Structures are given as structure tokens and as C-alpha cells.
Computed example of a mutant assay.
Amino acid sequence: MGDTRATVLKTIADTLIERAEALPSRVLQVAVTGITASGKSTLAQELAQILTRRGRSSVHIAVDDFHNPRDLRHRRGRDSAEGYYFDAYNYPLLKKLVLEPLAPGGNLIYQARGFDLETDAPVEEALNKANPGDIFLFAASFLLRPEIVSYFDYRIYYLYRYRF
């Protein structure tokens, strides 16, 4: 990892830890969003590793595990930009299984995955228990959509894969 990238990641991690410490009675939900294939998941994974090394409990949620079934995702055409925006993700399921349980007043019991792209089928997994002070990093395009943006305490918009 280059010195500049390490510095940027450290700065983001410092900010997230500071923000989590300011909200000690709840989970910090962080959106890592931006254009497709920009490196959002890589950034979220790197941040989770740094946070863990620094003693902070962190969880990376791949929102790709909350897609809609293929027939719904591709109903406007496989390469449709409108279809990608409106039909790719199952936001109600993401809200039900993760965002709402982790939100203030939620029960902190969440399911990390809701859909398997390979099998094109819903998944049911063991439930997990979050703890106040945990930092959750969500990675996907379109996390600034009106129906979910208010769940995030902090938003990172990653425009492009820049090798710094």
C-alpha cells in the first residue's frame, strides 16, 4: 500500500473512530459508495482491517448480497442504466435485515446476507448480534438513495479507483 493511500485510510479510520466514540450507545453505520468497479469494497475491507487492528469492532457488509432476483434485476434489459438504478438491489430487505436493526432503537440483531447472486436465491443465515460502538461499513453503488441514505451516520463517496 502506498504511503498516500495509507495516510488517507488512517485519516478515514481516525474520523470513524472519533465519530463512533461520540455515539457510544449505538452502532455507527458508514456508507462507502460510488461508481461501479471503483474499489468501494476494497476500501471498505481495508478500513475494516485497520479498525480491527486498532481494537475497534467493525463489520463489512457487501450490499451485493442484497440484490434482487435476476428476472427483476434484468426486466428492463441487462445493460439498462435505469434497471441498474431501480431494480438491482432489494433495499426493503437490506433495511429489514441490517439497517433497521442497527439504527437507533433497533435490536442490534442482523443478518449479514440476504441474497446469493450465484444461485439467484435468497439466503437465510444465522443471525448476528452487534454491540454499541461497532462500526459497520456498507459498500455498494447507490447508497445515497432517498430511501436509505438517512440510515448512514457517515458517507464516503469513492469516485474512481485512483492508485495513490
Rank of each mutant, 00 (worst) to 15 (best):
S25W: 09
A103L: 09
R113S: 15
A37C: 14
A130F: 00
I109L: 10
R56T: 06
L97P: 01
A112N: 14
R113T: 06
R78L: 00
A112F: 11
F138T: 06
P92H: 00
E21C: 14
Q29G: 10
F136W: 05
L127S: 08
Y89C: 02
I109V: 15
R56P: 02
E82F: 07
R75F: 00
V123P: 06
T33W: 04
G114W: 03
R113D: 09
E100F: 13
Q49Y: 12
G114E: 01
F142C: 12
G133M: 00
K40R: 10
I35W: 08
F142T: 06
S38A: 15
K96W: 09
F86E: 01
L117F: 14
G39C: 13
R76I: 02
T42S: 07
I35M: 11
R26M: 15
A140F: 00
L43R: 01
I17G: 03
P24C: 11
I135N: 04
L127H: 07
Y110G: 00
V59F: 15
I50M: 06
G106Y: 07
R56Y: 01
I12H: 01
P24E: 15
K95A: 04
S41N: 12
D120T: 12
V123W: 00
R26G: 15
D14K: 07
V123I: 06
R53S: 07
D14T: 10
Y85G: 01
Q45N: 14
Q111R: 10
S25E: 11
T52R: 05
A13Y: 00
L97M: 13
R19C: 14
E125P: 02
T15M: 03
A103K: 09
L43C: 11
D134A: 07
R56E: 02
S141H: 10
V123N: 08
A81W: 07
D14E: 09
L23K: 11
E118G: 15
F142A: 05
G39A: 14
P146E: 13
K10H: 02
R53F: 06
H67P: 01
L47Q: 03
G106W: 08
E125M: 08
E46G: 09
S80V: 02
A62C: 09
N128T: 05
R76L: 03
T15A: 14
V59D: 04
Q45D: 11
T33D: 15
D116E: 13
K129Q: 15
T11A: 13
L102I: 05
S38Y: 13
L102K: 06
R54Q: 10
H67Y: 07
A126Q: 12
A121Q: 15
P146V: 08
V98Q: 04
A48Q: 11
P69I: 09
H74W: 04
R53W: 13
P132L: 04
I61K: 02
R26F: 12
I135R: 03
K40D: 04
V27M: 07
Q49E: 12
R54M: 09
D120M: 14
E46S: 14
F66M: 05
E118W: 10
N128A: 08
A37W: 13
E124R: 08
